[in-house]
């Protein structure tokens, strides 16, 4: 999706002492693509806050595997986004007729300290979101 804008490797840039410049450059393309991903999922519909909970650690020592869990009662699909990753998409959970609850947990990669956003598509067609800030000690992308 957006690999072309961010083709550098983190380890290399840090090794070269360009870490500060990298951090300064990152948020602009990353935020733009997060909004694009949200728009693609919601079709431009309004997204309300609440109605979904995201359970994630405050501090993740290893960004390569960060456990997260969400609960969104009444949701038919839930999309997870990592706003600070080179590609913000994490995954989309679609619940079928035999889903016992609208809860799932998985493990994700986070490149750096950032907000993780969960957006739920409710059965009535509305959308709701929540986010959680996770501090990452060792990034999990590239390198």
């Amino acid at each position: 999706m957006t690999f072309s804008t961010l083709t550098f490797s983190r380890r290399e840039t840090i090794a070269l002492g360009l870490g500060a410049a990298t951090v300064a450059l990152l948020p602009i393309p990353a935020m733009a693509t997060t909004d694009e991903a949200i728009a693609a999922f919601t079709g431009g519909a309004d997204v309300a806050d609440g109605g979904i909970s995201l359970n994630a650690p405050e501090i993740a020592e290893n960004g390569n595997t960060v456990p997260i869990e969400f609960t969104a009662d009444g949701a038919s699909a839930v999309m997870l986004l990592a706003t600070g990753n080179p590609n913000p998409d994490v995954g989309t959970f679609n619940f079928g007729p035999l889903a016992g609850s609208r809860t799932a947990s998985t493990r994700i990669r986070l490149a750096k300290t950032q907000d993780v956003v969960a957006i739920a598509k409710m059965e009535d067609g509305s959308f709701t979101r929540t986010s959680a800030t996770i501090k990452v000690t060792i990034g999990g992308c590239g390198g």
Binding site: N64, T65, V66, E69, A82, N85, N87, P88, D89, V90, G91, T92, F93, N94, F95, G96, P97, L98, A99, G100, S101, T103, A104, S105, T106, R107, I108, R109, L110, G140, C141
Partner: peptide
Amino acid sequence: DFNGQNVVDVKMEPAISTNPYFQFEAT
């Protein structure tokens, strides 16, 4: 799926960790 009926269908991106793990509930 359970007996042909869907429980959960996950679209995965590269941000899912090595050795993908999922926990969920089914009726």
